[in-house]
Simulated assay, not measured.
Amino acid sequence: MAEVSFQPGLMISDPRADYTLVDSGDGRKLERYGDFHFIRPEPQAMWAPHESDWQADGEFLPASDDDGGGRWHLNANVPQEGWTQHWEEVTFTAQCTPFRHLAYFPDMDPVWRWIRSNMEDMEASQALNLFGYTGVGTLALSAAGSNLVHVDASKKSVSAARDNAALSCMTERPIRWIIDDAAKFAAREVRRERRYDAILLDPPKYGRGPDGEIWRLEEDLAPLVESCGKLLDENSRCLFLTVYAVRMSALAIGSLLQEKLLHLGGTIEVGELAVREQARGLLLPTAIYARWSSGKTT
């Protein structure tokens, strides 16, 4: 039976070469992505900024309605096709996207490191990255020695992930690149009686599959986690689930993992992801998480 810890924890992304949260406040944040600085909306930055005059290469201005739209205002020196960045062994392209982010999620840094730490004594471990996006997390796990299955519903995202693998000189690594609806793929893997040592789940609030499938987090997360629980066994190591931008508690998704993964034993923990601001050391929350680990080593 799994041991459940509902004492919330923190996984903090500190300033580093590829990304730094420089300053934040008044509903915005100033970030450095490689050589460029950007300003983006951040409703949770309710405090006053450390500096009043931010200098940036671009700013995302949200739309006046609640539909989540908006557009970038960029200086001429920001490459429209993106620029090269690095995370440990991984080289990838960062880019200003229409969805206000920059083609990877730097606050996932401690998540990738945690999964790698759970797998470091294994040879040729099998890992599944659902909603794999542009593949930085997939490549981070692959670089540590895991065999990967990378799944995303977006053909464009999977193409970008393959390009990032080429930039990282990792095209020969054992990675399967799959364009598919994550829930359907996981259900098929259960029917195939496949198993994995680690699963990374980073689902959006809303999305569409390649054949028009509709993903709604509140409705579809529970059956997906149930499928994932069936893809793990007594020799598996970990599962990590992140949830962004929804009215949901870390305790709720922790209880979901408790129900669906109880048979695996091990430990379930919950908490928040956060980024440490460089200016004052303030912690800016970005997501909630629930994670399972077996505690096993070989």
Score class of each variant (00 low, 15 high):
G68F: 11
K156D: 13
L167S: 07
L200Q: 10
E89A: 09
R173E: 13
P43F: 04
F105H: 07
S159Q: 13
N75T: 08
S64D: 14
K205D: 15
G58K: 05
P41H: 06
R40D: 01
V246T: 15
G145V: 12
V151I: 07
P223M: 12
G137F: 01
E259S: 15
A153W: 01
L284H: 05
S157Y: 15
E218I: 08
V225Y: 06
F99P: 07
R32W: 06
L251P: 00
E31A: 00
E259Q: 13
G68Y: 10
A182C: 12
V190S: 05
E81Y: 10
D121Q: 09
K29F: 02
F38G: 01
N235G: 09
R40M: 02
W112F: 04
S5T: 15
I178P: 04
G70M: 10
H263A: 12
L224M: 13
V243I: 13
Q7R: 11
H150T: 09
H86G: 10
S159H: 09
R16L: 02
Q258M: 04
A103G: 00
A94H: 02
K184G: 12
S154N: 11
F92W: 01
T286N: 09
I178C: 08
A76N: 15
G69T: 07
P79G: 10
R276P: 00
L10M: 08
V275D: 00
D26I: 02
E89C: 02
T84S: 03
A160C: 11
L232S: 01
A279P: 06
K29W: 08
S154G: 13
H37R: 09
F92A: 00
D152Y: 08
L262N: 11
R173K: 15
T84P: 06
E31H: 03
G207R: 05
I12A: 10
L128N: 00
C96A: 15
D121L: 05
A160P: 06
M248G: 10
P174N: 12
R71P: 04
W177N: 00
R16S: 11
Y289V: 06
K260D: 01
G34R: 04
D18M: 02
N235F: 10
Q85F: 03
A183M: 14
T134D: 07
Y206D: 15
G295D: 08
F99K: 15
F92R: 03
C228H: 12
A166T: 15
P98W: 11
A63S: 15
G27Y: 07
Q258F: 05
